[in-house]
Write a protein that binds this DNA or RNA. Sequence first.
DNA 1: CTTTATCTAGGAATCATTCCTACATAACAT
DNA 2: ATGTTATGTAGGAATGATTCCTAGATAAAG
Lengths: 153, 153
Amino acid sequence: MKLSSDELHARFRRHALRLTRQRAAIYSALASVNSHPTADDLYRTVKQRYPMMSLNTVYYTLSVLCRAGLVQEVNVGHDVARFDGNVTAHHHLICVGCRQIVDVIDEGLNQLAVSRGQARGFRILGHRVEFHGYCAGCQRAMLDVPPRNGQKH
Amino acid sequence: MKLSSDELHARFRRHALRLTRQRAAIYSALASVNSHPTADDLYRTVKQRYPMMSLNTVYYTLSVLCRAGLVQEVNVGHDVARFDGNVTAHHHLICVGCRQIVDVIDEGLNQLAVSRGQARGFRILGHRVEFHGYCAGCQRAMLDVPPRNGQKH
DNA sequence: CTTTATCTAGGAATCATTCCTACATAACAT
DNA sequence: ATGTTATGTAGGAATGATTCCTAGATAAAG
Ligand SMILES: [Mn+2]
Ligand SMILES: [Mn+2]
Ligand SMILES: [Zn+2]
Ligand SMILES: [Zn+2]
């Protein structure tokens, strides 16, 4: 959902972050979608309103927001980095065909733990669960062209 | 554990893969450790016996072995790719300090599922669980030097 | 309004991974 | 054992996401 200017201001102040036009634009863009865009996706979106915007600024801002905990990085494979403006506890469903990432909100998945025996002295801070599969669209595409073997991107 | 030449031959034949010196060396090296080495780690290991070995061959071989299902890629963050010679169902414990990856074998974690409502038409093929935290060594290191803020890799 | 610590833009650098290709060779057939 | 051929290998070049560097801009505080 879209977030108010006051709320934006409050969140940045709470983390002692300077609120610049660029940061407001980047964070608003990310917080208002439920997809999981790449730095370049955000760059292209935000550049429409701020043509001077540098891709570097997008990366820097995202790293700052990640460290502050306002944003998280969600990576699939060793692919390009994807970002998530939703930092409440949730997990992901990943399409191995088109690489879209969909949220899974399930309290049961938030309660997982490692047995003491296997923890080997680790102090666990959190965990993430990824389900991999084919989305409805990719399944349909595979049926349309059954004898192909080269799965395109 | 170390694996016999016969077993190696059998596994490659089963997947219709040519067995070359390089492949035997790379796969043996990976299958005999329970760490999760990078392509370059394997390159350096294998190069000791085969100094002609190319890093490119390591990458190519790993991609072939992954496609065949003899090996899996296990990535943490958008870091360098790590490989796992253990393809039986298991999950991972990841140290965010030193980035070591430790196996977690827990039948409960293998049974996770997404509720039909949230699956949104996905056909799920599998899932992976990552626990993040600090290993015993990194916890000790942090206590030794409490006022530092720059966490060195 | 002034000060100053921090941020931004843009260009250059990094480096893991992939691409290209001539030569080598494992697997199979004779 | 030898020849044939599809496939693998080595090494060098290319790619591309991310990071590094730095001079000028600006948010925040007094
Ligand atoms: Mn999400
Ligand atoms: Mn493992
Ligand atoms: Zn898809
Ligand atoms: Zn550690």
